[in-house]
Simulated scan of single mutants.
Amino acid sequence: MTDRIPLAGVIGSPIAHSRSPVMHMHWLATLGLAGHYIPMDVAQQDLERVLQTLPRMGFVGVNVTVPHKETVLQFADQVTDRAGLIGAANTLTFRAGGGIVADNTDGYGFIENLRRGAPNWDAAAGPAVVVGAGGASRAVVASLIEAGVPEIMVSNRTRIRAERLREDLGRRVRVVDWSQVRNVLGDAGLLVNTTSLGMTGNPPLRLSLDGLRPDAVVTDLVYAPLRTELLQVAEARGCVTVDGLGMLLYQGVPGFERWFGQRPTVDEATRRAVLG
């Protein structure tokens, strides 16, 4: 009897746009490992049944995306501290003896991408301004707190979401009115867009960078297009800019290693494969 080929995948709805399958299949091929990574469009009402069924089919884990990141926590047998703090999971591992471990590697992916794209960025040098207060923002803010950023100013079009984030993540978070973001940029060492504004097909992020310091670092979680208008304007001011593709790549590393037993390398070949 031969061993089962390990299976992994990504669940969400919609899911056809996901670049995760290309990334994981590239790593499997590069490392010469047996395995498959499959995109699965899963409706909310089917989520629990799907999570019960996948391990029986040979799945060792899955990534989770919109709209299931928060909901999957209620079906997990173990939730890591960081997933619990953020209130969402993007990586599930199915234990061999049964049970689901829920983790969130988005913050890890964000910080790794930031440090490699802006190696001179100093977390302690000054405040960070984070635009948006959704699930991605929570992961980013938690990772910035862990990295030692002294103050994180969060602004969201719906202020109550930013206030909830502050309540959950603590005293280093300060809420800034959406209309006042441009007025706090002068102190910022880092500006992060965690919204979908600026993404292909979405409205632009309308934010004047006139007050931003030229030595600030600017990063955008949007990676389609790779060079968003925010990054182009920041670059023209002399800022170091970091695109959002690296966050996608680095957040996938821990899950791949758990599921397939080897740690993949994020390199230029990986970026080319994902960009197609």
Rank of each mutant, 00 (worst) to 15 (best):
A147H: 06
L190I: 06
S208H: 13
F256V: 01
N156P: 11
R206S: 14
Y223Q: 11
R56N: 06
K69G: 05
M57F: 14
T265Y: 00
V233S: 11
E112P: 00
L7C: 12
D41V: 00
T105L: 11
I152P: 09
G198L: 08
A102Y: 03
L212F: 10
G135R: 08
G246V: 02
G99W: 03
V79C: 06
D106R: 08
T219L: 05
V154W: 05
E70M: 13
M25W: 01
T265P: 00
E112A: 14
C239Q: 10
V154M: 06
G186C: 06
P39H: 04
M25L: 13
P203K: 12
A128E: 07
L191M: 01
T30S: 13
L92P: 06
G97K: 04
E70Q: 15
R172D: 12
A234R: 05
F260I: 03
V176A: 03
A224N: 15
R49K: 12
C239M: 02
M153F: 04
R206H: 12
L226K: 11
T228E: 10
I145W: 09
R258E: 14
E70V: 15
T270K: 08
R213V: 02
V60G: 15
A43V: 00
D215C: 03
Q52K: 14
G12A: 14
T105S: 15
W259C: 09
L92N: 03
H17V: 02
P6S: 10
R157C: 05
A234S: 11
L248I: 02
P39R: 04
L230R: 09
V192C: 06
V253I: 06
D220S: 02
V130F: 08
S208M: 06
R174H: 12
A8N: 01
G84W: 04
R19V: 13
A88H: 09
R237W: 00
V42L: 05
I15A: 01
V192L: 07
V131E: 07
S137K: 02
Y250R: 10
A139N: 08
L205E: 09
P55F: 11
A269C: 00
F94V: 05
L144F: 07
W178S: 06
V50W: 01
G238Y: 08
T93W: 02
Y37R: 00
H68F: 12
R172F: 00
A124T: 15
R49W: 04
L51M: 11
P55W: 08
Q52Y: 04
E235S: 15
G261S: 08
